[in-house]
């Protein structure tokens, strides 16, 4: 070792809960390896108690986030795109570590940025597209509007960045808050992405990211009675049944649909899956 070679400062990859970056309460971690099998870093291995804490943080953030104006949520989502774009080189490097080729890594970051931009524009259009006045047969004004369903638990697919973004953006754009179990094999970009979220004016707790073993964490998320909906997109088909059964405990909305990673228009199904329609009636008279 020569003295003129600088010793680099490495990042400790932690969880992202309530806007802070805590270690797992369990004190556990697991080694993450690159495409060549070499050691990249230790990622936090979240426990059921981290799931619990993340749900509490998400629930606490829900009233404030859902009450923001859609315009404001849209601005914050666009800010996320800006922050991501600004860190393009860092993400390309991390994605290359995770095994993507140079071109693929660049394309993945670009697509992730573009996806945030796409969803940012949806925030103040969703109610117009998913809601309407109801022409009822009586002296009443009645309208139906979409509202966020609440706390959404997501088990993200394996992809390191675009999959995560594709699962997350449609959840929070409408005012839901999220607890996301990141890609198990490639969790590091997710935590770096949390740094983007933390610097984008997104209120703490709106997104909570956990790294660790899906098989360990997903059942706690599925069974949690204060989680309103479950996105099982990152769960293998053979593993869905027990999780969906656990989700029946409080009748969570369960959604599972492959992320349309390459599509220019990802469609509205993922947003609509985490909406409730509220119908309000009021008499009309003098």
């Amino acid at each position: 070792m020569t003295s003129d070679q600088r010793v680099d400062v490495r990042k400790t990859y932690k969880l992202f809960i309530g806007g802070a970056f805590p270690r797992s309460e369990s004190g556990r971690s697991y080694p993450v390896t690159g495409a060549e099998g070499g050691f990249l870093a230790n990622a936090a291995r979240a426990s059921r108690k981290d799931v619990r804490d993340a749900v509490v943080a998400a629930r606490k953030a829900f009233p404030g986030w859902s009450a923001r104006t859609p315009y404001n949520r849209g601005q914050i989502l666009y800010r996320i795109a800006e922050m991501l774009e600004g860190r393009r080189a860092q993400f390309v490097a991390e994605l290359r570590d995770a095994g993507l080729g140079k071109g693929a890594a660049g394309a993945e970051v670009d697509a992730a940025v573009d996806r945030w931009v796409w969803y940012a524009g949806w925030a103040d259009k969703l109610a117009a597209v998913a809601g309407n006045a109801n022409p009822v047969a009586g002296p009443f004004f009645t309208f139906s509007t979409p509202e966020p369903t609440g706390v959404v638990g997501s088990v993200a697919p394996d992809g390191p960045l675009l999959d995560l973004v594709s699962a997350l953006a449609p959840v929070i754009v409408s005012g839901n808050t999220a607890v996301v179990v990141a890609s198990e094999p490639a969790p590091l970009p997710a935590i770096t992405f949390a740094e983007v979220l933390a610097t984008s004016d997104l209120p703490g707790g709106v997104v909570n990211l956990l790294t660790g073993r899906r098989a360990e964490l997903a059942p706690w998320l599925a069974g949690h009675m204060d989680v309103n909906a479950l996105d099982l997109t990152g769960v293998a088909e053979t593993d869905v049944k027990p999780l969906a059964e656990a989700a029946a405990g409080n009748l969570k909305r369960v959604f599972r649909d492959p992320v349309r990673a390459d599509a220019e228009d990802p469609g509205t199904a993922r947003m609509q899956a985490f909406l409730e329609i509220k119908t309000v009636w009021h008499p009309v008279g003098v």
Binding site: P139, F140, P283, V284, G285, V286
Partner: peptide, 14 residues
């Protein structure tokens, strides 16, 4: 006093 009386909802009364 008169304006403090409870309102009447026309649709409900009808």
């Amino acid at each position: 006093f008169l304006h403090g009386l409870p309102g009447v909802d026309r649709v409900g009364a009808d």
